[in-house]
Write a protein that binds this DNA or RNA. Structure first.
Lengths: 242, 242
DNA sequence: AATTATTTGTCCGTATGTATG
DNA sequence: CCATACATACGGACAAATAAT
């Protein structure tokens, strides 16, 4: 790991152990002093690491009891950290299914919201980004980057910080997850195709014409195509999926 | 505030100041030593508080620079803390609108997912909880509690920890927000009515018959009724809404 | 390009608080 | 009520990084 704080490093280490189940809910961690010596850091650093994990609701501390792992239902699932750790520990197909389910549930509705709340300037920016997507397909520019920014420009149009944050986390988690499960296709973009562009265009048009339910359906179709593609690719790697 | 850790208390204080905008993004906090003296705690405690805020992505620290407030788009919006602080600081109508928008977008899809993934035992539990809701309307038991558990039993049927966590946070935030903006109706449940029960029944039936799209529409109708009700109540308090 | 000042990062020793038995 | 075991809190010291000089 690229070195940051010692406390941040340690928090990630322990966090991973918790999410992986190596430290199970209800279990008490070794006391701070032992934890410190095991990692070769001071008690101060350990305490700071535990504070971070407490903010992520992975653990809670009590005097005389110690620090214990909280039940999974309490965890701060919607944080970059927990999402990442969850995709890292054991190439977790089940978790990928959950991520995909949530995405299929949320993004179409989010795009519909964008169609409802978009201002003129938002629409201008969306069109610009779509043109860049077209260019990428012709080989001018990176598809993955253009794709990300296209979707982002739509989400900005929803004018809803909560929704924006949610969808970004979701997309980042899925990208991270894919890089993890299929490290070989890092720089290929199998999604780049004429059909894919058509699906993107449909979404763009629906939002720009401020038609929420059409936007919803277009986005759903786009997602189904993408997840179907990923599905097939992961299947080829040997493991059945759903 | 009910006393917990000093560091937790301090984290909440500073967190509120940040979310309220009193400490703006880009701004650097007073250095740790000053912060400590101002609150009458040791530097250790202050550092632990800042670590928690760092885990919530509200701040980041750099040597020689200090600790500075991160841009709003980086914040960990989907955490109990940030959600609570956001509803606390200035009875924030705009934030309530955002919460409602997200709820209308997510919950119907979440219920549809439940209809797709429900097992027999889930359905049994859902029916039980619906009966308790009926009883509550007849005066036997607390409507608010029964309502919460009814919806929870449905979300459990989705068998998706991410979705469960998300919807719970959302519902808790909205409840908290309502208690804040209309403290007077704390224990009245204006939602309890024959019509409301009928809407709940429709959701229950759709899920139990495993009909996702019917479940989606039923839940949407239910939410529209509730938010319409809240809408009218808050309007009566004087301020226009959307 | 080297030096200094400033602020976080890290360590340690010790004392207090709190729940268990 | 006492002893135990853990987190909690304090204060002082030095290390490390980096902006400013």
């Amino acid at each position: 790991m690229r070195q940051k704080n010692l406390s941040t490093q340690l928090a990630h280490e322990i966090g991973r152990r918790i999410v992986s189940g190596q430290l199970a809910p209800g279990e008490v961690l070794p006391k701070a002093e032992v934890l410190s010596q095991a990692s070769g850091v001071s008690r101060t650093v350990t305490r700071e690491a535990l504070k971070a994990l407490e903010a992520l609701r992975l653990v809670e501390s009590h005097q005389k009891i110690g620090t214990l792992v909280r039940p999974r239902s309490d965890w701060q699932w919607w944080s970059q950290e927990v999402l990442r750790w969850s995709t890292e520990v054991t190439p977790n197909r089940a978790f990928l299914v959950q991520l995909t389910e949530v995405r299929m549930a949320i993004e179409p509705a989010a795009v519909a919201l964008a169609a409802r709340n978009a201002l003129d300037e938002d629409i201008l920016r969306i069109v610009e980004n779509f043109l860049r997507l077209e260019a990428a397909l012709r080989g001018e520019g990176d598809w993955a980057k253009a794709d990300y920014e296209f979707h982002d420009s739509i989400m900005l149009a929803a004018h809803n910080e909560l929704m924006l944050s949610l969808v970004r986390m979701l997309r980042d988690a899925l990208l991270y997850s894919r890089r993890h499960t299929m490290p070989l296709m890092q720089h290929t973009s199998p999604e780049a195709s004429v059909e894919s562009l058509a699906l993107h265009r449909a979404v763009m048009e629906a939002v720009c014409q401020r038609q929420p339910s059409r936007a919803y359906r277009s986005m759903f179709r786009l997602l189904r195509a993408v997840s179907g593609l990923v599905h097939r690719l992961t299947e080829e790697e040997g493991t059945a999926w759903a």
